[in-house]
């Protein structure tokens, strides 16, 4: 149980570090990286929740949720990067 708690707390710390950086930075790329760190923290929490002791198989529901969450996070990051690139192109014209 303490091991699970360790992972979950690490996830919470990652989430908060990411949020802090996302709020403090004012350029897009570091901000996006920070949000992805936050996302990794959230997913770590979900994955650690799935562990139900050595005798039981892990809970499949959080795993399915993390997979969906990853897809969403990747698409949102891609969209933000594309928007940022378009803005940069406009600046160069």
């Amino acid at each position: 149980m303490t091991q699970v708690l360790l992972y979950a707390l690490t996830g919470a710390v990652l989430f908060m570090l990411g949020v802090r950086a996302a709020l403090l930075r004012d350029t897009v790329l570091p901000r996006l990286l920070a949000l992805n760190v936050s996302g990794a923290g959230v997913f770590l929490i979900f994955v650690s929740l799935a562990y139900r002791g050595d005798s039981l198989p892990t809970d499949p529901v959080p795993h399915a949720l993390v997979l969906t969450g990853l897809v969403v996070a990747v698409s949102a990051t891609a969209l933000a990067l594309a928007l940022n690139r378009r803005l940069r192109e406009m600046d160069n014209e």
Partner: peptide
């Protein structure tokens, strides 16, 4: 970006 922060 804000929406992403909100949904996380």
């Amino acid at each position: 970006v804000l929406g992403l922060l909100g949904s996380l």
